[in-house]
Amino acid sequence: MSPLMRVHSLSHAFGNLLACSDISFELHGGEVLGVVGESGSGKTTLLNCLSARLTPTNGIVEYDLRGRGLTDIYTLSEPERRLLLRTDWGVVTQNPRDGLRMGVSAGGNVGERLMAVGARHYGEIRQEAEDWLSKVEMDLGRIDDAPKHFSGGMQQRLQIARNLVTKPRLVFMDEPTGGLDVSVQARLLDLLRGLVRELNLAAIIVTHDLAVARLLADRLMVMKDGKVVETGLTDQVLDDPHHPYTQLLVSSVLQV
């Protein structure tokens, strides 16, 4: 079985600063890959390179396009990449302000992707939006409210609904639970775990929160100073860390 995404010796430098260097991995359909590491270790740069939003200095990112097989995404034209980003992929940002249109109603936010790929029937768009809002456990009475009036947790759930409405196969998430309090985090994680399993989504989740990684990720990549220092199954990496940095990371988590 060919992988959904294959990355070969990817590096990106901002001038003299090497943000991530020589990263290679494969991701299969339905697999959730966690990327953990401290601030400044190059996690977000890596995610931007993978999601066709930042051309890497070196290396190849291949994605299994529908009907075309594994293709280097940076050989695609810009409109093709943008189409990929709003159909077969989803991007959930840490700050919902970056991923949502704050002045447009919740229904409009969810419907935007459908309209972007040509849906022109109001009733059907509305129905689809309602379906997705209920899937992310949002109150349907708020479908016509703008997200600027929502709580942080609701905004994050709306962002997830907005991304999943075109039934993507791969979702990129950058700190999806950052800035939320723990009980809201727990609900969001529960929801994400359910959706990922139910829809057989592949996901790449960047986080500094090991609990998030433990709950969601099948596999973990630990990054430090732009390099991958350890990879493996989540339980294996977290329960039996080999690299000194991973050991430090795991032992830094407070036990309540």
Binding site: E78, R82, G108, E112, G118
Partner: peptide, 22 residues
């Protein structure tokens, strides 16, 4: 300008959607 160049006009439809919803 990119939206015009690539004919990505779904967003305009969103404004009409908002009208009907409201």
């Amino acid at each position: 300008r990119k939206m015009h160049a690539y004919k990505e006009y779904g967003l305009m439809q969103v404004s009409l959607y908002e009208d009907i919803a409201r």
